[in-house]
Structure formats: structure tokens, C-alpha cells
Computed example of a mutant assay.
Amino acid sequence: MALEVDTRPERLDRDMVYRYLSQESYWARGLPREVFERSLANALCFGGYAEDGSQIAFARVITDRATFAYLADVFVLAAWQGRGMGKQLLRTILAHPDLQDLRRMMLATADAHGLYAPFGFNELSKPERLMERLDQDVYQRLAVAR
């Protein structure tokens, strides 16, 4: 089955994507809806659709469209995994005209190294040069503040 991939924001099943990220993903559990909406507004989003038009996959890319991109929130719904949908989604993302000739594209994953490696993603070449500022509990604090 071929996955149809589309970048039109109005086509996204925002409720399904939000539900997956905030309730099922290990990386965005507890994500507040308003933070989710801002993240979509400021990224190049890719929806993956089955033949019946239902959305079954998602990814977003944060990029300056010139030198750098960060691939985030990549998922395929469980019922569709193991059918090559993730690979189709990645091929389409990497072929997007706004993501050509970038110097660096990064991502973080706990368990999908085997998916990304064939597409040229590797461990950091110079990890000693990269730093991060991580606030692991920000979503929980935002929920309490409401």
C-alpha cells in the first residue's frame, strides 16, 4: 500500500495527532494542547494518509529551510506499523524541496535507530560540541499551573 503524504495544515487530523503525542508517545506525554498547536504552526508538518483518506502517520520538521532541520514527532499508528509506512514517510520528508542541501538534519530517538540509519542518520559526529537545555517536567508544571 502506498502512503499519501501531504503538508497542507488544514488536512491534518489534529485531534488524532494530539491524542497520540500527548497520551501514547514516550516523548511528549502530557503535552498541553496550546503547546501542541503552537508547535504545528511553527513547523513543516507531514501527514501520512491511507487510501481511504484517514491519517495514519505524522512528522514535523523544524527548519530554517537553508542550513538546518530537526525532525520531530514521527509516528505511524500501531495498526499500520510494519508495512513500510515509516520508510515511505521519511523518503517523502527527505525529498521535500524546502529540505534540500541542508548542512545538518538532526533527530532524537530512543528506539528507532534502525529506521533512520538507512536514510543517513548516524550518531553525532562530534557530540562534545553539542549541548542541550532540557526541561523534562515542563508539561507537568504547565498542567498544574492551570
Rank of each mutant, 00 (worst) to 15 (best):
P118W: 04
A143T: 09
H113I: 07
Y139D: 04
L89A: 07
A59N: 06
L99T: 00
Q81D: 08
R129W: 07
R146A: 15
F119D: 09
G120C: 11
R38Y: 01
D137E: 15
N42T: 10
A69R: 05
V61R: 00
P127Q: 12
D135F: 14
K126T: 11
A59M: 02
E51D: 15
L99W: 00
G53A: 06
G48V: 03
G82N: 06
R91W: 06
D6N: 12
I56A: 06
G53Y: 03
F119L: 13
F36A: 03
E128W: 09
D52S: 05
F68T: 14
E51M: 08
S125Y: 05
Y70C: 14
G47P: 01
W27P: 10
E10K: 07
R91S: 14
R14T: 08
V144L: 15
R11K: 06
E132A: 10
R104E: 15
L40R: 00
P118L: 09
M85W: 11
G84T: 00
M105C: 11
P127R: 11
P9D: 12
A143L: 12
E4L: 13
R133I: 15
V61S: 02
S54N: 02
M16A: 14
A41F: 06
Y18A: 02
V144A: 15
F121I: 03
M105F: 06
E128M: 01
M1A: 12
L115H: 01
P32G: 02
T109R: 07
R91G: 12
Y20Q: 01
F46A: 04
Y70P: 11
Q81A: 06
Y116T: 09
F121Y: 07
W80D: 08
L107W: 11
P127C: 05
Q88C: 06
E10R: 11
V35Q: 14
A78V: 09
D135A: 13
I93H: 10
M85R: 09
P32N: 06
A59T: 04
A145H: 10
S125A: 15
L124Q: 02
R29L: 12
T92R: 13
A108T: 14
L130P: 04
R141F: 08
R129A: 02
R38P: 00
N42H: 13
L40C: 03
M85L: 11
S25A: 11
L142T: 10
G82Y: 06
L90F: 08
R129V: 01
Q100M: 00
A57R: 00
R133Q: 14
D98C: 05
L99A: 04
R104V: 14
D52E: 09
S39G: 15
C45K: 04
T7C: 08
G30R: 11
L12Q: 04
A79N: 00
M106F: 12
L89C: 03
E34I: 03
M85V: 10
L89V: 05
Y26D: 14
G47N: 03
N42E: 13
S25Q: 09
A72P: 08
L21H: 03
S125C: 03
E51H: 14
D15R: 05
S54R: 11
W27L: 13
D52P: 07
S25F: 10
F36L: 03
F46V: 02
T63G: 08
A117F: 08
Q100K: 07
L142P: 06
V74K: 00
P97L: 02
K126Q: 15
R11W: 01
L102T: 10
G86D: 03
